[in-house]
Amino acid sequence: MEILKILKKIIIPRSRKVSLPDNECDVPAEYSQVLAFNTSFKGLLSEDKFIARSDYKHLIEKYKRLFDFFKVLESSNLLNDYIKKHKLDEAQIIYFSNAYNDIKELQKESSIIKTHNDKYISQHLVSEKDYLDRILRECDSAILLDNEQREVVLSDEDHTLVIAGAGAGKTTTIAAKVRYLVEKQGIDPKKILIISFTNKAVGELRERINDNLHIDCPITTFHSTGYTILKKSDTQNQRIVDSGYMYNVINRYLKSKVLSNSQLVDKLILFFGSY
């Protein structure tokens, strides 16, 4: 039992005991934190929403030391003694350990969260069918989103990558996603920024989103967005250069720094040969 006292001092300092009304014995603060995590996590899973990583990231940060505490107890074969001594509900600790272990690495997909999100998508593909059928009717009455496009519209992860070939309907999906965010998620159109590489793509998006759907969100190219950011910064002597200017800079550098140095010329030739 001395080891338990040492663990509590090292891993969770200032541990205090809390009395619960349905238990005569004092409950350790660590167990109260377990119950708090379980309540928060189960509450998140009970919501009718797509759960993004940002929705549970704070739980990972907040309860890391608590998870480490119970991992040390388990690896030291002291967990059962700890549970019996304080007359705790083992199922609550097991749930906490399994749930936290499942979500602790944000770069990996949590099976618990994935199960919830898959269920959310499948249910809303049915409940939102009529809405999704006509979501782009103002653009073209013949447009009908396929299942993959509908899943993109309904999903709400922090970062989503959609890969598709030319003509597969990426522009159509973006327009539908924007309308869904505005009408179903209550997002302010001014807070939605749509960026594309070409003026042609920007024109198509503006026609569908700004003109047909009457959603006034900014749609622009990468270059225009960058230029707008530069204009708003405090940096002095800014200069936006074109390809002709860059050609002259590189040309002058090669002539003055590279071509006059035979070793660098050899390395440059080897580089292009290898490339």
Score class of each variant (00 low, 15 high):
Lys119Thr: 09
Gln123Ser: 11
Gln123Ala: 09
Leu125Tyr: 06
Leu125Gly: 09
Val126Phe: 12
Val126Leu: 15
Val126Tyr: 12
Ser127Phe: 03
Ser127Asn: 11
Asp130Pro: 04
Asp130Asn: 15
Asp130Ile: 11
Tyr131Met: 13
Arg134Met: 08
Arg134Thr: 13
Arg137Phe: 13
Arg137Glu: 15
Glu138Met: 12
Ser141Phe: 07
Ile143Pro: 09
Asp146Gln: 10
Asp146Thr: 11
Glu148Ser: 13
Arg150Asp: 11
Arg150Phe: 02
Glu151Phe: 02
Val152Pro: 10
Leu154Lys: 01
Asp158Ile: 01
Gly165Arg: 00
Ala166Glu: 01
Ala166Ile: 02
Gly167Ile: 01
Thr172Met: 14
Ile174Val: 14
Ile174Arg: 04
Ala176Pro: 15
Ala176Phe: 13
Lys184Asn: 15
Lys184Gln: 15
Gln185Glu: 03
Pro189Met: 03
Lys190Pro: 04
Lys191Trp: 00
Lys191Val: 01
Ile192Cys: 08
Ser196Pro: 01
Phe197Cys: 12
Phe197Gln: 06
Phe197Ser: 06
Ala201Val: 05
Arg206Phe: 00
Arg206Tyr: 00
Glu207Asn: 06
Arg208Asp: 03
Asp211Glu: 12
Asn212Thr: 03
His214Asp: 10
Pro218Ser: 06
Ile219Tyr: 03
Thr228Lys: 06
Thr228Asn: 09
Leu230Ala: 14
Ser233Gly: 11
Ser233Val: 13
Thr235His: 01
Gln236Cys: 01
Gln236Leu: 09
Gln236Val: 03
Gln238Asp: 12
Gln238Thr: 14
Arg239Met: 10
Ile240Lys: 04
Ser243Lys: 07
Gly244Ala: 06
Tyr247Asn: 14
Tyr247Asp: 14
Asn248Met: 10
